[in-house]
């Protein structure tokens, strides 16, 4: 009995358990990180010289902030990584007490490291730390800087209080370009033998908006759900209204064609999308829609934002969305028509 069981476990590879691709293909070295090459180059220099300053890396989600800190820490510390790195993210308790005790305790801990290396505290999503906790962190950073360096990752560097900014080198990551996301997606498709068409990849990039993590997650879910990555299946997996319908809707609005616009709207509504889903996708389409001149774009975004706000207030109804269509269409019609 027991032998067969062991055998099963030993042959665990047969069981189709898959690591999330985001983890499987997470870069291990700074060289593998996509995008922001200037900043990454600078980190490589630090990885060689060893004397890492306190760092703040800021930027949108999914562009490799945490990954590059991890790579840096791995390259600096090698085998000592396990002992010499303390990582806290927003899901960990990070109040004033933790900063006072846990981080301080770690900073006082003795770890044997190669010369010129330091322990590293990684604070992910540091902008979600309370101001009080950040204040408490301030002095800690200074007192223990001989042995411990801090790497903070955050979405908005201005949520970090100035005294901490003053103690850190601030690196800003720009959003990943579509080509950069595409390149990585193609590599993974190659590796995993994913079947896809161009439409599918375009859809992945549209839905991800420069967020590599989301793009890869969506790729994996689409592939394991449908066995083929097409535009259609991507939008089904992401549960987002198809931008082609939205585009049709907006073009109709720009021409003042209320019937066309509401037809597209009710098509989406009947597919079961919520008002928030629809309005968010409308915004995404409009802001990069090159059929709209600047003025129209501006006025449309105003109306969309206004409607979004109402929806957030609790009225996520078809009426609100129809009202939005009507207001957009009105701009597309000659004002003379509305005079009596």
């Amino acid at each position: 009995m027991s032998t067969t069981k062991e055998k099963e476990i030993a042959n665990g590879n047969d069981v189709p358990y898959e690591l999330p691709w985001v983890e499987k293909y997470r870069p291990k070295l700074l060289d593998d990180i996509v995008g922001n090459s200037d900043t990454i180059d600078r980190l490589k220099v630090i990885a060689q010289s060893g004397n890492v300053p306190h760092l703040i890396i800021s930027g949108m989600p999914g562009i490799g902030k945490t990954t590059s800190i991890h790579c840096l820490a791995h390259q600096l510390l090698g085998d000592a990584y396990k002992d010499a790195v303390l990582e806290l993210n927003a899901s960990d308790e990070r109040g004033v007490d933790v900063v006072r005790n846990k981080i301080k305790g770690f900073a006082q801990k003795k770890v044997t490291l190669p010369p010129g290396r330091h322990k590293i505290v990684i604070l992910d999503e540091a902008d979600s730390m309370t101001a009080g906790a950040q204040q408490a962190l301030r002095r800690t950073m200074e007192i223990y800087s001989n042995t411990t360096r801090f790497c903070l990752a955050c979405n908005m560097s201005n949520k970090i209080i100035e005294p901490i900014q003053s103690r850190c080198a601030i690196l800003r990551y720009a959003k990943l370009r579509d080509e950069e996301v595409l390149k990585r997606l193609l590599e993974i498709c190659e590796e995993e033998k994913v079947q896809y068409n161009d439409d599918g990849l375009t859809a992945l990039i549209f839905t991800a908006e420069g967020d590599m993590r989301q793009a890869i997650n969506n790729l994996q879910s689409t592939w394991s759900g449908f066995g083929f990555v097409s535009g259609e299946s991507v939008f089904k997996v992401c549960d987002q209204p198809h931008p082609i319908i939205i585009r049709k809707m907006i073009s109709a609005c720009a021409k003042g064609d209320i019937d066309g616009a509401t037809a597209s709207l009710s098509e989406l509504w009947q597919q079961g999308y919520s008002a928030v889903d629809i309005v968010v996708t409308i915004f995404r389409v409009v802001k990069n829609f090159d059929e709209l001149p600047e003025y129209t774009k501006l006025e449309f975004i105003k109306e969309i934002g206004f409607t979004h706000m109402r929806i957030l207030e609790g009225v996520g109804t078809l009426i609100q969305l129809s009202g939005l269509m009507a207001r957009l269409c009105k701009m597309g019609r000659n004002p003379e028509e509305f005079k009596f």
């Binding site: 915004f283 802001k287 600047e294 003025y295 774009k297 501006l298 975004i301 105003k302 969309i304 934002g305 206004f306 979004h308 706000m309 957030l312 207030e313």
Partner: peptide, 23 residues
Amino acid sequence: NGGDNWYEQNPYAFHLYALGTLH
């Protein structure tokens, strides 16, 4: 329009400020 109703970030605000100013 929407200063207080958004928690922290109004996703439209930046585009509106920039586009509106440019215009």
